[in-house]
Amino acid sequence: MISDIITILIVGAMISAIYALIAIGFTMIFGVGGILNLTHGALLMIAAYAYFVTQPYIGRAGGVIVGIVLAAVASYGVYMGLVRYIEENVVITFMATIMAALALQEAMTMAFSQQAQVLTPIMPGSVAIAGTRMQYDQLLAFVFSWVMIGMLWYYVTNTKDGRAILATSMSERGAIFTGVDLPRVRRQTWLIAGAFAGVGGIFIGRLQQTSPEMWLEPLTLAFMIVIIGGVGSIKGSIIAAYLIGYIETLTVALLGAPYRVVVALLIIIAVIMYRPEGLYGREYLE
C-alpha cells in the first residue's frame, strides 16, 4: 500500500515534469500573441526524429543538442514562414497550424515510414527507487525540466528581453506603451517555445515512442494544460502539468489506461464550467 503510493508519487512526478516541458512553450506563444500553435506537437516530433537520425553520428549529447536546436529553428520557421502572415486572424491561424502539423506527419511518414522508432538512451541504465524501477532518462527528464524552468524564470525576470516577453504576456497594450518591440518579442518567444518543445520531444520520443503520429497526444495535453492552468500563465501551466500528470497516473492505477482520456475530459468540462479562466489566468484574451 505505502509502496504503491510512493510509486505513484514518483512515476507521477517524472511524467509531469515532461508535461510541463511540453506545455510551457505552448502557453508562452498563446500568452504573447493569442495564438494557439497547433504545430506544437509536430515540433516535438521533429526533435525526436532529429535525435534519432543524428545520434549515431555525433553521439548522444550531440543528438540532444541538434534536436533542441532544430525544434527551435522549426518553431521560428513556422512563425516567420507561416503564422506571421496570418496571425491577425486567430481562426485561420488555428486551422492553418493544424494543417501544417498534418502535412509534417505525412512528410515524416514518407521519410521514416509509419514504423515507430527506438531512440538510443541518453543515459543508459536504470535504478530502483523505493522499489520502483526508474530509467536514468526519466530522472534526466525531471532534472532537465526543472533546470529549464529555472533558466526561463531567470530570463523573464532578470534580462531585458525576458522582461519584455513577460510584460507582453501580461498585457500586450501595456507592453507596447512601454516601448516593447512586439515583433521581436514574438520571434524570441517562438524560438524559446521551440527549444522547450525540443527537450520535451526528445524525452517523449525516447521514453514513449517516436513515430509520425506522436504529435497529437502531446498537443492535446498541452492544450488541456493551458486551459486548466490559465491562458498565458507559465506558473499555471507548470501546476496544471503536475495536476494532469498525477491524475493520469492515478487513473491508470485505479481505473485502467483506457479511461485516461475520459477522466481528462471530465476535468476539462469541470474547469470550463466553474473556472473558465483557469487556475492563474486572466480572462481569455483580455
Binding site: L36, V90, V91, F94, F223, M224, I227, L265, I268, I269, I272, P276, Y284, L285
Partner: peptide, 9 residues
Amino acid sequence: LEGPYFSLI
C-alpha cells in the same frame, strides 16, 4: 465561452 474552449472540447 470563447472559441478555443469549444475546439478543445
